[in-house]
């Protein structure tokens, strides 16, 4: 079935589709700039000003300042670019998983182990 015909939603998942790619363009472009040390440094000096430079909406800017990953996803952030933001914050994927699921990092890691064992 084509993407146009198949409009199903997957619970707990924001598909990074055309809607999100458009909505999150500036946000992702900012995070893409974190590939470079210059971008990371400029962001760290004045986070809000750096968000403005890339034309983030007020909701996106607040979510960046609050490190609110779930809102960033809903506002068009792609996890691949948000991962660069997370790296800048020195967070790994288990930290990010915990933030998104409301678990502690240890609880999230325990869930991974359980899932990995097929339980």
């Amino acid at each position: 079935m084509s993407y146009i015909d198949d409009q199903r939603e997957v619970e707990g998942t924001v598909l990074f589709d055309h809607r999100m790619a458009k909505k999150g363009y500036g946000l992702n472009k900012m995070c893409f700039s974190f590939n470079g040390q210059v971008g990371r440094d400029e962001f760290s000096q004045d986070e809000a000003a750096y968000c403005d430079k890339f034309g983030l909406s007020e909701v996106q800017k607040k979510a960046i300042l609050d490190k609110d990953i779930l809102t960033l996803l809903k506002e068009g952030g792609s996890i691949y670019y948000l991962a660069k933001f997370a790296g800048l914050l020195k967070l790994n994927m288990q930290d990010i998983g915990a933030l998104q699921t409301g678990m502690s990092v240890d609880e999230f890691k325990a869930m991974l182990v359980k899932n990995g064992q097929g339980k």
Binding site: L70, G116, G118
Partner: peptide
Amino acid sequence: HQLDGERAGIINRE
């Protein structure tokens, strides 16, 4: 694997 969203952490071994 799923890195993003409330569903982060899913693994389907089977």
